[in-house]
Amino acid sequence: MSGPQIISESPWRGALRRLLGNALATAGALFLILLCLICWLGPKLSPYSQSEQNLELRATAPSAAHWMGTDALGRDIATRVLHGGRVSLLVGLLATGVAVIIGVAYGMVSGLAGGRTDAALMRIVDILYAFPFMTFVIILTVVFGRDFKLLFATIGAVEWLTMARVVRGQVLSLKRQEFITAARSYGARWWHILFRHLLPNVIGPVIIYASLTVPGVMLLEATLSFLGLGIQPPDASWGVLIRDGAEQMENAPWLLIFPGAFFSVTLLALNFLGDGLRDALDPKSLR
């Protein structure tokens, strides 16, 4: 071999390599994949249903038959934790999706329009940042009922602000770069520039912020459910289970510990993955 080898790889391959090189992020990703699998399959394979009551088994401790014990109504906690995980993960992903769609659209419009429209749109975002969001979400869930669909729509509708700022900043800096001018000069239509040149270049930051939004959204859902404003019994999410557990922690601590542990570890995995994605997709931020 003579001379330095020049390794060329696509930006996405490089990002994937950096991500897999990050032990914490890889562990987080693996845990999340595994969690999704067992939350999806677990309730189907379990001999119990999440709402099946067995009043002879009131709040029994973990055993061979019920790995995580049973609650006050004799429901199997393992099945309920997995089922609740499905609800929590689904709300987290869907609400993040709503936030991403609103944030990307808003940021794009603001960044592309520029000038006064941009200033006005960003002023609105600034003002919205000063809003007491938790209070609005509470009022919204009270007003529109505690429906699953409305729950994630409501959460998504208040979590898009940072996304809009990030996308707008990206679009503003991209707009001035030569390849956009080049595209303009050969007569590309605005939608061509938007979909071929701008969108692919904002995907990186969008993925980073989306992955950092998911744990926040899941926390908000759990908070609402904990306060009795989110998912309603007999349906369960981790927030519901943690509330039930907190009420009975004196005589049945496993009711609190298992859903609490699942929720905390999931948040931890999401944070590791989010940090890893940031370092992988945006090597400049590596410190």
Partner: peptide, 21 residues
């Protein structure tokens, strides 16, 4: 990082379990 991931609805009851009960 652990602190960021411990929701208050988990940490609060756990502290109550430890220090009160």
């Amino acid at each position: 990082t652990l602190g960021v991931c411990l929701p208050s609805m988990v940490l609060g009851p756990v502290l109550a379990l430890l220090f009160s009960l």
